[in-house]
Design a protein around this nucleic acid. Structure first.
Lengths: 214, 214, 214, 214
DNA sequence: TATGAATGAGACTTCATTCAT
DNA sequence: CATGAATGAAGTCTCATTCAT
């Protein structure tokens, strides 16, 4: 997989030329506002080639999402692994994620806000990426807090998903819409929230029975 | 404002007939897959009338979203107000929100996953609703935890936004996709997460200075 | 019948207000380019009133044509009657006709070129007017040339019709399109042509038998 | 230019398929009563193709007129050229014209009565055809009568135009409306009228000075 | 009668997609 | 593979006409 986010040569193979052209046009003027003709003209390939590699206009978007999300996740995981202090892994990952979103704000906007509702295939790709992100969060935070194993795995997974939603929502509001620059502070805050959430979960893990409340 | 979610008579005025028809078709076969022709045929009004009330196909979606989101928020706030025990208000609101999403799963799907990316106007409506939801969370949780006033308002707002994202992400994965039925448990979990997040925030409010980490 | 061409007060009765408004708008921007709304707004009456007096937008045009063509024919006949010299009657009529077309060029354009093809009713009105004009020509010229009665009435009628076409064609090309001003010269020419045609007809009335030629 | 009037295969290229379909529909139920949808359905092409070849519904009519009028004029000129007797050329042309109008009465109706008033472009095409027809008349008749060159060219042109109007008017009344069959007699009559008109013109060419009358 | 909402038809346009050369 | 013609679906808009108040 050739990087769409971090490499900036021009691609040789038509498929990547198309993905690159699509990335620029979709982030520039939006997916719906971009016609297939514009994509193939920018990529300097023919419509025949386009339909050889992609089943439809939306398929291009799906593959583009797949590439981008994979890249982002890989980069986040790589960064966390580089962090030697075990208590800082989740922070490092979250921070890197915010950084990428901040550095490629149009791409983040495309992935997070201007994307859904286009096809179930796109939703599925996003869904899978969220699941993987949640797994990363789950695994990073788990090693940071003392877990007595009393919290069910299912609850922890749900909490991890919730944190993914929390992070993305903050990215949308703070980074994309409000254009906040202090990534470190946001990452710190989100990491705190995550740790707080998991900690609270561990402490109160037995307080819920059936319809009872805390 | 006439309720689109909870009333089920047939409307008299063409605007509501169109909104109702759109709700059914968009939740049934999707926004993009529904043509204006189908909407006006189901609503039994003319295309001219459609374009009299709505500037475009997307404008109909925007107004539909506005109505639905207002309704949901109002219902959530109303339910929280009915809860007399002050420590249970946030739980009551979250629980009601999950309940509505569960009872109207196609609508929830429309609002949460199959909607964005259609126009900036839709995004804006969703954004505003999220902000209002965050305010509700913020106000509900604030009265439940002992706040020494040491946490900045901005941080609490961000945390509230994060919680909105957390809740919606869980709704998408657990209620919409996985079709989980135990609303109470999910609400309990999410409420815990929220309280945990806010508590951790209060405890560590001073631990972050510049680029430092927890 | 109130004159639309030569009177210039504002009308009291809605029907004439509508006809007058239509005349101005149709000659100004064309029949097809004028909407019913514009007509009723200019006439300061309601759509209800419009459809009380006229069955349709085209019906208004038909009645307008009827009025205008009647007026023009009446004026042409009146002028010919005022001419005492019997040999000048046809010239006087033709001259007056050209004069009216020249003085009201937009109206002439409407009647002669921008009108047909709209409905069979319009065509019929025009057809009748042409027939009446032909009768005038026929009667005027008949008294001017010595007729031995050898020419069939049918032939003379046809020749008269031909002269109507000849006159109108010249009006279109010379007065409307080329904007020629020397009405007298044109009238003289056309009158000559008419007399020449009828004379030739009389001289050669027996030369045609079956498929033979002159 | 492929003949629309005299050929009767089905066309290959969409443009001619559309022109042919339009010819049938416009002559059958009228231009205004025919929708673009009907035209493309009859021609078995798509609306996109329609708007690729024609700018508008009216543009199709304009191009159709152009083709038809060119065809008719060409046929008339060709017939006159085949006539060896120089004194019969104008008769031959006029006769052929009447014959075509008689053989294709719906087309003649379309061209002569149900056409104008639709757009200035249509009027222009008709105007040009009339001018060309007038030139044909002028040239044909000029060689038949002894011209001393005393009549101004402008007058002869005007007379020729008048004859075009005369012929068309007779076609409308006698052939199209009254459905007369004796083409030969009508042609003979019209030719006589034309010759009479031109002769009279030549005889009296100096009798008009300024505002004087014959 | 006036007003204005509503209708229904149809013109025009853009595009994703297909197909022949 | 490239080119470009053609398709068909659907969005948008304008109007003549009708109807209720």
């Amino acid at each position: 997989m050739i990087s769409l986010l971090f490499h900036h040569q021009s691609y040789k193979d038509p498929q990547n030329k198309l993905l690159d052209a699509a990335l620029h046009l979709y982030t520039g003027k939006g997916f719906r506002e971009t016609s297939v003709l514009e994509v193939v003209e920018r990529a300097r390939v023919s419509k025949t080639t386009f339909y050889h590699f992609f089943n439809s206009k939306e398929d291009l978007l799906v593959q583009l999402f797949q590439s981008l999300l994979e890249e982002v996740l890989q980069e986040v995981r790589r960064t966390a692994e580089l962090e030697t202090h075990i208590a800082h892994k989740s922070f490092a990952g979250i921070r890197r994620y915010l950084e990428i979103c901040n550095d490629h704000r149009p791409v983040a906007r495309l992935l997070l806000v201007s994307s859904a509702g286009l096809s179930s295939a796109v939703e599925e790709v996003r869904h899978k990426a969220h699941v993987e992100f949640a797994i990363f969060i789950y695994e990073s935070v788990r090693v940071e807090i003392e877990q007595e194993g009393l919290v069910s795995d299912d609850q922890i997974h749900t909490a991890a998903q919730a944190m993914v939603g929390a992070i993305n929502e903050v990215v949308i509001h703070k980074i994309i819409v409000e254009n906040k620059k202090n990534i470190d502070e946001l990452a710190h805050l989100l990491n705190h929230i995550a740790i707080g959430a998991f900690t609270m979960l561990a402490e109160n893990q037995m307080s819920f029975k059936g319809g009872m409340r805390l």
